[in-house]
């Protein structure tokens, strides 16, 4: 299997043209949702917890929710939209009848979701700034972090969609996988208070590395540590892409 740039470009163009006609509903949900989370947690918990370390809680949560937004806006559409396009809209039948292979479809879908997520992630960041988060030059890296993380999680979503035979299967995935992913990543509370084994497992959570990177981008980079986080995320992306492409190929080509 090899990626074909023209094929990926064609699928991206399709998504872009569809997006031009549907962006309102698509964007509103992706932007409003994290902002509500930010306000609820920031002020709800913020009243109980003033600071985490030396960071104001609202800024702590604000940066955490950027990562959560990237997760939610990639893994969910990766699952639901992919499944819907495959089984209900028959979109992939049309694409595969053209000179486009399963690997091109997976690559394009994941890139597209990742690109959107990297932008959507800026919404809670902006709101956090309104509530006192200071702009920093390092924040320019945040869309890039979102892109890499988003690509990996979009691939995870697509992989799950390729395994699933009905929408009902997603309920299990959400409780068993997505919820722990976003709770045990240092988004809302630091991992320090958790039992050792939980912390150890949490270090395998890609979103933990995303959260760390985003916080460092906002509050001060730690080059060597951050290089480690970046390598982990890149590795996660490549692995998830390979697995999703293979699985989707099996699912789409009988």
């Amino acid at each position: 299997m090899r990626v074909d740039r023209s094929a990926v470009g064609g699928v991206l163009l399709r998504n872009y043209v569809v997006f031009l006609r549907t962006w309102r509903s698509n964007t509103v949900i992706s932007v409003v949702d994290p902002v509500i989370s930010l306000l609820a947690f920031g002020f709800g918990f913020g009243a109980l917890v003033a600071k985490v370390g030396n960071i104001d809680y609202v800024e702590y949560v604000g940066t955490g929710i950027v990562a959560q937004t990237v997760l939610f806006t990639t893994i969910f559409p990766g699952m639901f939209e992919t499944f819907f396009k495959r089984d209900y809209q028959h979109t992939y039948d049309g694409l595969l009848a053209a000179p486009v292979d399963a690997i091109d479809v997976v690559t394009a879908e994941a890139l597209w979701l990742a690109a959107k997520a990297s932008v959507f992630g800026l919404a809670p960041l902006t709101v956090a700034m309104v509530f006192g988060l200071d702009p920093a030059a390092g924040m320019l890296l945040i869309p890039l972090i979102g892109l890499v993380t988003g690509f990996g999680f979009a691939c995870v979503g697509i992989f799950i969609a390729a395994l699933a035979s009905s929408f009902a299967a997603f309920d299990y995935v959400i409780s068993m996988l997505v919820t722990p992913l976003f709770l045990f990543a240092g988004t809302f509370f630091p991992l320090q208070g958790l039992p050792d084994w939980v912390r150890l497992v949490a270090h395998l959570n890609p979103l933990f590395h995303t959260v760390e990177l985003i916080r460092h981008a906002a509050f001060g980079l730690q080059p060597l540590t951050d290089l480690g986080h970046a390598v982990f995320l890149a590795g996660f992306g490549v692995l998830a892409w390979a697995v999703a492409s293979r699985r989707m190929q099996k699912r789409l080509v009988a």
Partner: peptide
Amino acid sequence: MGVVPQDDNLDEDL
């Protein structure tokens, strides 16, 4: 090749 599928797979939103 051109392919006209049995299942309508037009993009409704376009």
